Amino acid sequence: MAKGKLSFTDIDVTVTVPAGTRVIEVSEKVGAGIIYGCREGDCGTCLMKVEGGMEYLSEPTALEDKVLKENMAGKDMRCACQAQVLGDGEVKVHPA
């Protein structure tokens, strides 16, 4: 199974995760500052900034895209509850 690296720059922690892992799942486990409300991609509280490795994240779903637009998020922003690590690279994130 493919694996990728996920770095939380707010707490300076990098972990290796299996492909398909949602960012919010790891954030909770390592104590990063990304918060969440619904975990369903509908509220926008888990917005995060992707500092690098956007190409190693899943494409936004239609629902996530809608939430990103409603929150006027920049192109470097994603919802941590929806973004999945694809593997084969490193993704660097921090809370929005």
Rank of each mutant, 00 (worst) to 15 (best):
T16N: 15
V93Q: 03
E70T: 02
D76Q: 13
A2H: 14
V30G: 11
M77G: 06
V17E: 04
A83E: 03
L6P: 01
S58H: 08
V23H: 02
T45V: 12
K69M: 10
D42T: 15
C81H: 07
M77A: 08
D12C: 00
H94N: 05
Y56N: 08
G33T: 01
A80P: 01
Y56K: 08
V85Q: 01
C81T: 00
E51C: 11
V85R: 00
E55K: 14
G20T: 02
G89D: 00
E90T: 07
E64R: 12
D65E: 14
D88F: 03
D12Q: 00
E90P: 01
K75S: 14
E90Y: 00
D88E: 04
K29Q: 09
V23G: 03
M72S: 15
K3V: 13
A32E: 01
M48R: 07
N71S: 10
R22F: 09
D88L: 07
G44M: 13
V26K: 06
K29L: 14
G44I: 04
Q84R: 11
L6S: 04
R22G: 06
D88I: 01
K29D: 06
P95W: 09
V17K: 08
P60H: 10
P60A: 10
Q82H: 10
Q84V: 04
D76H: 14
M1E: 07
A83C: 02
A62G: 09
I34M: 09
C81P: 06
A96M: 10
G41R: 12
G33K: 09
E28W: 11
Y56G: 06
E40I: 10
S27E: 02
I34C: 06
L6I: 01
E55I: 13
L68D: 05
G37I: 04
E70I: 02
K5D: 02
L68C: 05
A96D: 11
A2P: 15
D76L: 05
M48K: 10
G37H: 12
A2R: 15
A96E: 12
E64C: 11
G53A: 04
L6N: 03
I35Q: 15
L57P: 05
C43G: 12
V50A: 04
E51M: 11
H94T: 03
R78D: 01
D10P: 04
T61M: 11
E40R: 15
I24H: 08
C81R: 07
